[in-house]
Amino acid sequence: MFGFGKKKEKKPQQSPDMAGTENEMSEERKAELLHTISAKQAEIAQKAGEEQAAVQEELGLALYELGKDDDAIAAFEASLQNKKSIGPGYKTLLKLYNQKRAEAAKSNDESLLQLYMQKMDGMMQISKDVTRGLK
């Protein structure tokens, strides 16, 4: 009635910014991403504030596409610390936190589980703040 069974029949659609690491990546794309990453890393040092946050977000997205989740998390966290935003970086980071939360639950690691739950709470606060116009 409410489409409960649909998730089994239908594979959830992925938005472009959620394009993940599951698809096999061509060598060309890998090389392109590695080039982007090194360029962005160099660019970060030359920028500050909001501009730096934007580059950190782009770096995070490239690292995520390359499958380097921990590095991507670090880049997204640095970006949000610089400037709160709810763009593609935010969405990907929430997804990554949730993955980490699920892994911690499976490995029965209480402290890690609590850490990622707290981080997810923090993401809700950022979303509230940005939507209400807080910088």
Partner: peptide, 15 residues
């Protein structure tokens, strides 16, 4: 362990 966390409404605001 395979829970789907149901989060507060701001989870949808960015979309």
């Amino acid at each position: 362990p395979n829970a789907i966390p149901a989060l507060d409404c701001p989870v949808l605001f960015p979309y």
